[in-house]
Amino acid sequence: MCDDVLSETDEVLTLPDVAELLGVPVTRVHQMLRDDLLLAVRRDKIAVIPSTFFVADEENVGKQRVLKQLPGLIAVLRDGGYSHAEALRWMYEEDPSLPGRPVDALHTHSAREVVRRAQALAL
Rank of each mutant, 00 (worst) to 15 (best):
Tyr82Gly: 03
Pro16Ser: 03
Met1Arg: 12
Gln119His: 14
Val114Ser: 00
Val48His: 01
Glu59Leu: 11
Glu94Ala: 09
Leu39Pro: 02
Val66Cys: 07
Arg43Trp: 10
Leu106Thr: 03
Thr52Asn: 10
Gly62Tyr: 03
Val76Thr: 14
Ser51Glu: 11
Asp36Val: 08
His107Gly: 11
Val55Ile: 10
Gly62Pro: 05
Pro16Lys: 07
Asp79Ala: 14
Met1Gln: 12
Leu121Glu: 15
Thr52Arg: 15
Leu37Gln: 13
Leu37Ala: 10
Glu58Trp: 09
Gly72His: 15
Val24Trp: 10
Ser110Trp: 05
Met91Trp: 04
Asp79Pro: 07
Leu67Cys: 13
Ile46Gly: 03
Pro50Trp: 03
Pro50Ala: 05
Asp44Arg: 14
Gln119Lys: 15
Val114Lys: 01
Met91Lys: 04
Val5Gln: 03
Leu22Val: 03
Leu121Trp: 14
Arg65Ile: 00
Gly80Asn: 15
His30Trp: 11
Glu94Ile: 11
Ser83Met: 13
Arg89Tyr: 03
Val103Leu: 11
His107Thr: 12
Arg117Lys: 11
Val29Arg: 00
Leu21Ser: 01
Pro96Ala: 08
Glu93Ile: 07
Pro96Glu: 14
Ala47Gly: 05
Glu11Phe: 12
Leu106Arg: 04
Val5Ala: 02
Asp79Gln: 15
Arg34Pro: 05
Leu37Pro: 03
Pro102Leu: 02
Ala85Met: 09
Val5Trp: 02
Lys63Ile: 00
Leu39Asp: 02
His109Pro: 09
Glu86Pro: 06
Asp3Ile: 11
Ala118Ile: 13
Gly62Glu: 05
Gly72Trp: 07
Arg65Tyr: 01
Leu6Thr: 01
Gly80Glu: 12
Phe54Ala: 00
Thr27Met: 10
Met1Phe: 08
Val55Leu: 07
Glu8Ile: 07
Glu58Ile: 09
Arg89Lys: 14
Asp10Gly: 02
Arg78Cys: 05
Asp10Pro: 06
Val103Gln: 03
Met32Pro: 01
Arg89Ala: 07
Val26Gly: 03
Ala47Arg: 15
Leu13Met: 14
Ala105Cys: 10
Leu15Asp: 02
Asp104Cys: 08
Gly80Asp: 14
Gly80Ala: 12
Val29Tyr: 03
Val115His: 05
Leu22Lys: 01
Glu11Leu: 13
Val18Ile: 06
Trp90Met: 02
Met32Asn: 07
Pro25Asn: 11
Asn60Lys: 13
Asp79Arg: 15
Leu37Val: 12
Ile49Phe: 05
Ala40Ser: 13
Ala56Thr: 13
Arg112Cys: 06
Ile49Lys: 00
His30Ile: 06
Lys63Asp: 00
Leu33Phe: 06
Asp44Gln: 15
Asp3Tyr: 09
Leu77Tyr: 06
Val76Tyr: 05
Pro25Met: 10
Leu121Gln: 15
Val24Asn: 04
Gly72Ser: 11
Asp44Val: 09
Leu98Lys: 03
Ile49Arg: 00
Leu98Gly: 01
His84Thr: 14
Glu8Ala: 11
Gly80Met: 15
Val48Ile: 04
Gly23Glu: 07
Phe53Leu: 07
Leu6Glu: 05
Ala56Ser: 13
Ile46Asn: 12
Ile49Met: 04
Ile74His: 01
Glu59Pro: 06
Leu106Cys: 04
Gly100Ala: 09
Leu38Cys: 04
Pro71Gly: 05
Asp95Thr: 10
His30Lys: 14
Tyr82Pro: 08
